[in-house]
Amino acid sequence: MAKSKVTAAIAEIAAGKTAFELAKNEGTTFTNASASDIGLQGTTQNCTITLSDGDGVDGKIKCVLLNAPAAVIGATVQWTRNASSGEWTCGTKAKTGGAKLESKYVGSGCSNLASS
């Protein structure tokens, strides 16, 4: 159940990458943006979704897990866009301590790198 929740969250925020990419290519910044700016809901059954850019990257689409088993509730999954290449990478972070999630909870769609 925990792994399927993480996998669903990764897929849910991945759906915003194309709209995020188009907006960035048009010069949009996401300093005070909301998920609706890229066609996502701010809160879903799986996530609280936020957007940002800065911190040496060109953008992040982040999900804090909701309604999940204790092992993953409050954990973060995010897609991070590289400013130079435009490549997206997936990362995870446990609820506490900034460590990555245990790999048994992370599906093949995410490399399970600790993220901020």
Rank of each mutant, 00 (worst) to 15 (best):
M1D: 14
A2H: 00
T7F: 08
A8F: 04
I10Q: 03
A11C: 03
A11R: 01
A14D: 13
T18I: 00
A19S: 12
F20G: 08
F20T: 03
L22G: 04
A23P: 07
E26Y: 04
G27Q: 03
T28M: 09
T29V: 10
T29M: 02
T31H: 03
T31N: 07
A33P: 06
A33V: 05
S34C: 05
S36A: 11
D37W: 00
D37Q: 08
I38V: 01
G39D: 15
L40Y: 14
L40M: 12
Q41S: 15
Q41N: 12
G42A: 15
G42D: 13
T43C: 09
T43A: 15
Q45V: 14
N46H: 15
N46V: 03
T50M: 04
T50K: 12
L51M: 00
S52Y: 05
G56K: 00
G56I: 04
V57I: 05
K62E: 14
K62S: 15
K62V: 01
C63Y: 12
V64N: 14
V64T: 15
L65W: 13
L66M: 11
N67V: 04
A71N: 11
V72I: 03
V72W: 11
I73K: 14
G74P: 02
A75D: 04
T76F: 04
V77W: 04
V77C: 09
W79M: 13
T80P: 09
S84H: 10
S85P: 08
E87L: 14
T89D: 10
T89E: 15
T89K: 15
C90V: 09
C90M: 10
G91M: 04
T92P: 00
A94W: 04
A94Y: 08
A94H: 02
K95Y: 00
G97F: 06
A99C: 01
A99Q: 13
K100C: 00
L101Q: 00
E102Q: 12
E102T: 14
E102K: 10
S103H: 06
K104M: 06
K104H: 02
Y105H: 10
Y105G: 07
V106S: 12
V106K: 06
G107R: 12
G107L: 03
S108M: 00
G109A: 15
C110N: 05
C110L: 11
S111Y: 02
N112Y: 06
N112P: 00
L113V: 04
A114W: 04
S116F: 15
